[in-house]
């Protein structure tokens, strides 16, 4: 093995250091993608791995692809993932408990077998010569790629354009919902509500009587029970309603207690409470009337 080949066969120490450090993080990110319970965390782990891969692309002389990796993958694709996660729900009942019998073990077995065999194959392959990209990149990496794309691979490139257009149309078609009937007017909605007879007055707004004025906290009905109608259906489906009714009732009790303390009376049963204020009001009225007469 001569010196030149030897030079092409090994990399610089800096690259080796970079590889070993970043490879650990890349694998950790990949494992995190698979194992994180929340999809958002998985997405973040994946983004990290992709960035590290972009660095590896750059180290391997693929400057253009390294940049594209960051722009397209971590930039566009991962953003798309996050958007969909927001639409669908960040923690949509995704427990890691396996429901299909034996699935996890089979997957593990196949995965380990696959990895071992693949690595054994790589180890077996006679990868003795490494050319390096110095010659190919001599006119610039982007120029070299462009020359190949627009000359040798021009048809494939054109077809890719068609593919992208088709995919864009497909995305629109799949997510588009055809409107099959006219949107009901307010008048029609009101009439329908009366006809149904279930909820005649308008829906309660979220946060009414609540400590938090937040969308995930249901309104409390007059008796203190929470009304799930007031929370968005997506949140309901995900089970992300925060019930604060107990707290609200406790708060109310505390206020009444304070009032009672201030008036120096013991807290009496509800019936007595209700009767006395009525009586005092009528007494006040009688007093006012008497005053009026006196003037």
């Amino acid at each position: 093995m001569n010196a030149l080949a030897q030079a092409g066969y090994t990399t610089s120490t800096g690259e080796a250091t970079q590889f070993w450090v970043l490879a650990i993080f890349a694998v950790a990110g990949a494992l995190g993608t698979v194992m994180m319970k929340k999809a958002v965390h998985s997405a973040l782990c994946l983004a990290g791995t992709m960035v590290i891969l972009a660095v590896f692309y750059l180290a391997n002389g693929a400057y253009f692809l390294g940049v594209v990796q960051i722009v397209v993958y971590t930039g566009a694709v991962m953003m798309l993932f996050l958007f969909v996660l927001m639409l669908v729900g960040i923690s949509a009942a995704d427990s890691l408990k396996e429901t299909i019998k034996g699935q996890r073990w089979l997957a593990m077995l196949c995965g380990i077998g696959f990895g071992v065999l693949l690595m054994a194959g790589i180890g077996n392959a006679s990868l003795s010569s490494f050319e390096g990209l110095e010659d190919a990149n001599s006119g610039g990496n982007v120029h070299g790629l462009a020359a190949l794309i627009f000359r040798d691979y021009v048809f494939a490139f054109e077809l890719t354009g068609a593919l992208l257009i088709t995919a864009a149309v497909a995305g629109m078609v799949l997510t588009h919902r055809e409107k099959t009937e006219a949107t009901p007017t307010q008048r029609e909605q009101a009439a329908q509500r009366v006809r149904d007879g279930v909820q005649v007055p308008p829906m309660p707004a979220p946060g009414v009587y609540a400590r938090h004025n937040a969308v995930d906290i249901p309104a409390l009905l007059p008796d203190g029970t929470p009304s799930e109608l007031t929370v968005n259906r997506t949140l309901r489906d995900r089970g992300q309603i925060r019930d604060v009714s107990a707290q609200a009732l406790a708060d109310l009790a505390a206020i009444e207690q304070r009032t009672a303390d201030y008036q120096g009376k013991a807290l009496e049963p509800d019936t007595g409470d209700d009767a006395e204020p009525n009586g005092s009001v009528s007494a006040n009225a009688g007093g006012k009337a008497g005053k009026g007469e006196g003037e």
Binding site: I100, Q103, L106, A107, C110, G111, F114, L117, G121
Partner: peptide, 26 residues
Amino acid sequence: NGYARSYAVSMFGGAVVLIAATLLMR
């Protein structure tokens, strides 16, 4: 069983077998 993941395991197992066969032939 209708679960796509089960079918995926079968496919993956098949890939494992294919790789093993290829290696053996080599």
